[in-house]
Amino acid sequence: MYGAALQHIKPGDWLTLLLSSLFVVALTLTLWSGDLADKAIIRSGGKIFREVPLSPDQQIEVPGPLGISIISIQQRKARIASDPSPRQYCVRQGWLQQAGEIALCLPNQVSVELAGSKKKYDSLNY
């Protein structure tokens, strides 16, 4: 049965199949490879509190108007481990790994943003 199906594929069709597969793989690799982050930019009240590299695992305590937010960095990922803000959106956001990802805690005004080698736009107006 498979043999019967295969006899309909001509040599050029194999070439098409091969090239198309390569094309799809290339597309996937280019479009799905997010820029890995190098450092975390921690802000408090809109000002940069600290910029830390992602390599040594550590916990950082950031003071805000409501209290202290704890940012933890582990295995080249970052997250907000605890925060006094009522809704806990930033804590629930979990681990950030790719450049451009941001967790923002309101109303404690603490944020952590991951940055890679090149800065990407997060919004454009024209």
């Binding site: 050029g12 069709d13 098409t16 199949l17």
Partner: peptide, 18 residues
């Protein structure tokens, strides 16, 4: 218009799908 000796409906279909 691809040479029919080498290319059949499979190629046509893949190009059309893309």
């Amino acid at each position: 218009h691809l040479p029919a000796r080498w290319f059949g409906p499979v190629s046509h279909s893949i190009y059309a799908a893309f």
